[in-house]
């Protein structure tokens, strides 16, 4: 049992609950019609025969809408990740300078 700030979390209890729900679902499923066959409930596709060919969506096409709507953000990110080793170190220097200001400014401006 894991005590968090607001309460607690117990994985074992959660799994037990899950198994109980699964058993209940199985029992309810057992009450259904036994004469059901898969082809007896074919979806209606405007009278056209269902395509039998299996297709696979390529990885680049997944979340196209997401990346396309955030085009502005991603163009900045692509500019940042330019792969030039000099700029990698430049970022380190820049962050160090910012940290210098964070650490030293309270001394100058009380």
């Amino acid at each position: 049992m894991l005590h968090t700030t607001g309460g607690y979390w117990d994985a074992v209890a959660w799994i037990v609950a899950f198994i109980v729900i699964a058993v209940v679902v199985y029992i309810i499923r057992g009450l259904g019609r036994r004469d059901f066959r898969k082809d007896s409930a074919e979806p209606f596709f405007s009278g056209v025969e269902l395509p039998t060919e299996k297709t696979h969506v390529k990885a680049s096409n997944i979340y196209w809408g997401f990346t396309d709507s955030l085009k502005g953000y991603y163009s900045i990110m692509k500019k940042m990740h330019d792969g030039i080793i000099n700029n990698y170190i430049a970022w380190f220097i820049a962050i160090s300078v910012l940290l210098f200001f964070v650490v030293f400014l309270p001394e100058v401006i009380p």
Binding site: M80, H81, F92, I95, S96, F104
Partner: peptide, 28 residues
């Protein structure tokens, strides 16, 4: 002030080595 400079160098160097943005470019 020396400790402050040392602190900044240590924090930013280790943050770069652990891959904190925006010093993470080497990680991928």
């Amino acid at each position: 002030s020396l400790e402050k400079i040392a602190l900044v160098l240590l924090v930013s160097a280790f943050a770069m080595k652990c891959g904190a943005v925006p010093m993470h470019f080497w990680a991928p």
